[in-house]
Design a protein around this nucleic acid. Sequence first.
DNA 1: CCTCATTCGTTCAATGCTTGAACTTAGTGC
DNA 2: GCACTAAGTTCAAGCATTGAACGAATGAGG
Lengths: 381, 381
Amino acid sequence: MTTVDHLRQVRLGNLRTVLLALVDRPGSRADLAARTGLTKATLSNLAEPLLAGGILVEEPATLAGMGRPSKPLRFHPAGPVAVGAEINVSHLAVETLGLDGATLERRLVPADMRKATADEVLDRIAGLIREVTGGSERTVLGAGLAIPGVVHEGTIVRAPNLPEFVGERLAERLGERTGLDVQLDNEANLAALAHLWPRHLAGEDFVHVTADVGIGAGVVLGGEVYRGVSGFAGELGHVVIERNGIRCTCGSRGCVERYAGLDVILREAGRRRLDSLRKALEAGDPRAAAAVRTAGEALGVGIATLMNLFDVPTVVLGGSYAVLYDHLREAVQSELDGRVLAGGERHTRLLASPLGEFAVVRGAAGLITRRAVQQPERLFA
Amino acid sequence: MTTVDHLRQVRLGNLRTVLLALVDRPGSRADLAARTGLTKATLSNLAEPLLAGGILVEEPATLAGMGRPSKPLRFHPAGPVAVGAEINVSHLAVETLGLDGATLERRLVPADMRKATADEVLDRIAGLIREVTGGSERTVLGAGLAIPGVVHEGTIVRAPNLPEFVGERLAERLGERTGLDVQLDNEANLAALAHLWPRHLAGEDFVHVTADVGIGAGVVLGGEVYRGVSGFAGELGHVVIERNGIRCTCGSRGCVERYAGLDVILREAGRRRLDSLRKALEAGDPRAAAAVRTAGEALGVGIATLMNLFDVPTVVLGGSYAVLYDHLREAVQSELDGRVLAGGERHTRLLASPLGEFAVVRGAAGLITRRAVQQPERLFA
DNA sequence: CCTCATTCGTTCAATGCTTGAACTTAGTGC
DNA sequence: GCACTAAGTTCAAGCATTGAACGAATGAGG
C-alpha cells in the first residue's frame, strides 16, 4: 500500500466522520468542522464531491445572528435509499430507509412460511421490494435480509423454524431477482442493530433480547453487533438454567427457551396468540399474569448469566417481550438484582424496545445505510 | 491531526508490523519485507532507528546459497525487558521477560496473603522485582501486576479472597516503590493473555478457564482479552447451572463455582491440597476420581453456556484444571457435546494449558512487552 | 448609506512516508 | 575473472490536511 493509498484511507475516514455527524443532525461546514474536529478547509473539500454526487444538499442560507449566514448541509431528499426485508415464520416485511434514518415506505404481510417453498417466498419478497422502490428514481444502495436463523458467511446454518432454508444462500437468490446487493443476517442481530443505528437507544453496550419461537439475543459490544466466530453468538435461548431440567430440541436440558419461550408462555396462559394474551393481562387475568411472571423468572436467570459473562449493563427487551414488558419487568429485574455481580453497586438497566414490529426490517435496512456511511466509497458508484 | 501526523501513524503501524514479525522469528530485511508485505526500502528505513536505539541487533551475515548473504535482525540480547508480578492468596511470583518472549528470571514464594497488609505485600513484591532486575543494566519497560480480583480503571472493585485490597490502587503504590510504570489486571485475564502472547496457543478466539478459590474465565476475542464495560466479563464462576441450587456467597443460587470450584473438589475428594488429590488420582482412588468427574460435569454445563453465548470454539483449561485435565476432560467434553450448538457439525476443542504455575506472571509481563510492541513509540523513550 | 464587527467559506504553500525502479554491494559457481 | 544471484540502498513522485490569510455575506450602529 503506497503512501498515497494511506492518505486516501485518511480521506475516507474523514468522509465517514462527516457523514456520521450528519446522521446525527444537519449542519453547516463550520458547524461540522467544529463537531468533527476537522478544519473548515477540510470540510469544504470533503463536502464538494458529496454535493456534486447528490448525496448532500446545501440548504438556503439561514439568517440567524451576526456574521455571514451559514448554509446547512443535509442528506439529499432524493438521495440513495436502502431496503430492509424480513422473512419470518408468520409474516414478511419490507421497509425503505434514507441515509438520514427516515423511513419512507413499509409493508408487513401475514404469511405462513412453513407451507411455502424458498422460491415462493423469494418471489413474494422481491415483489414487495419492487412495490416500495418502484415509484421512485432514488438510487437503491442494497437490501438487508433478515431471517430467523443462524447465518455464517452468507449461508444459513441453522433455522429450527424454517428447516427448508438451511444450507441456502438466500442473499444471492434474492439478488438475482431484484438486481440488488443483498446482505443476509440473523433477525436477532438486526433487531439489535436497529437500536444502535441510525440513532442510539442505549448508549454503547447493550443486549437486545427477543422471543418468537426461540429466544435470541443480539449482543452489542463497542458499537458493533457481536457475531462470534461462526454466527452463533448470543444464543440465549440455549443457556442452561436447570441442568437436569426439561429436554430441549437442541439436545440439551434446561434451556431458557423451554421456560421463557413465547410458545411456553402462551401455553401456560391458556392462550393461542400474543394479542389475546395481552388483552388477558390488561383485563387482570391471573393465569396469564402468573405465566408471564414465571417466564420472567427463567428469563431473568438466563440474562443474569449473560450479564455475568459479557459484563454489559443494559438489556433491551424487544419483540414479544416488549409487548409483555410491564408484566415481565419485575420478575426479570428481581433475578438480575440477586444474581448479577455488576460493577460495585449493582447497576443493571432494563428497557423496553420502542421500535415495535418493524424493528427487524429497520435493522435490515440499517445494515445497508450503515455500511454506506462507514464505507463512503460505496456512495460514489 | 495534520497529514504529517497521519503519516507518522502509518509509520508507527508499520513499525508494529515489523516488530510483530520479529516476535514470531528473526529475519533479514528482505525476509521481513516479504513477510510483512512492505518493501525492502521501507524495511531498511524502519530498521535503522531500531538498530540505533538498541532494540534490535544485526547478526553477522549468514552464508547460505547464492547472492549477497543476508544479515538477520533480531531483538537485542541486552534490549529492554518487562516484569510480571502476581499477588495470590497463597503465593507471590515475579518473572522477567524479553521482547523476544524469552523468560530471564523467575521467583515463586509461598506466602499467606490473608494475614498480610497491603504495605507488607507490596514491599515483598518490590523486593522480588529488585531481585530479578537488579543484576542487569537492561531497560525495564514496566511491570504487569496480577491479582485475583476484578479491576476496573486501575481500581480493585471486587476481590472475594483478598477483601483488604478492595478499593486499592495497587499499580500506583507499587509504582512508587519500584519507579516502574505498573499495570494492574485480573489474573484470569492475564493467564489468558499468556496463551496468546508472545506465542499463540489456540488460534484466534478461545476461552481460558482456571480455578483457584473461584473460577475465572479469560475470554479472547479477535486477539484481545475481552474485559467488558467494567472488568467483570468472563465471570464463569457465577454462571447459574441450577437456578434453585446451592446458595453462593455472591447472593445467587446454583453458581458453577459451588459445584466445580477447587475447594469443592478437594472437600468431596476428602483431600486438603491439590497435590494430594493429584497423587490420589494417579493411585486410582475412586472417591477422588468421582469428585473430579462430578465437578467436570458442572464445569461442562457452565462452559457450554459460555460457548453458546460467545461462540468461541476452543477452551483451554489452566491452573488446577490443567493438573486435573486427564480426569476432567471426559465429563466436560460430554456436556459440551450434548449442549453446545456449534457450527454445523459440533466442533468444540478442549485443551490443557501447557504453561503451569507461571502462566499468570508470564501474562503479566506479556502485558508490558505486548504494549511496547503495539505502541513502538514507547521503545524510544 | 456607510463602516465596523462578526462569522462563513475558500485558497494555497508546506509537509513527510511509502513506493518501485534503478543501483550498489557481496557473495557463489564455473 | 566473469556471469549470476540476492540483499540492501538511494531517490523522485505523489496526496490530504493544515493554518493563516483572504474574500464573502450579513447585522448593528451612526
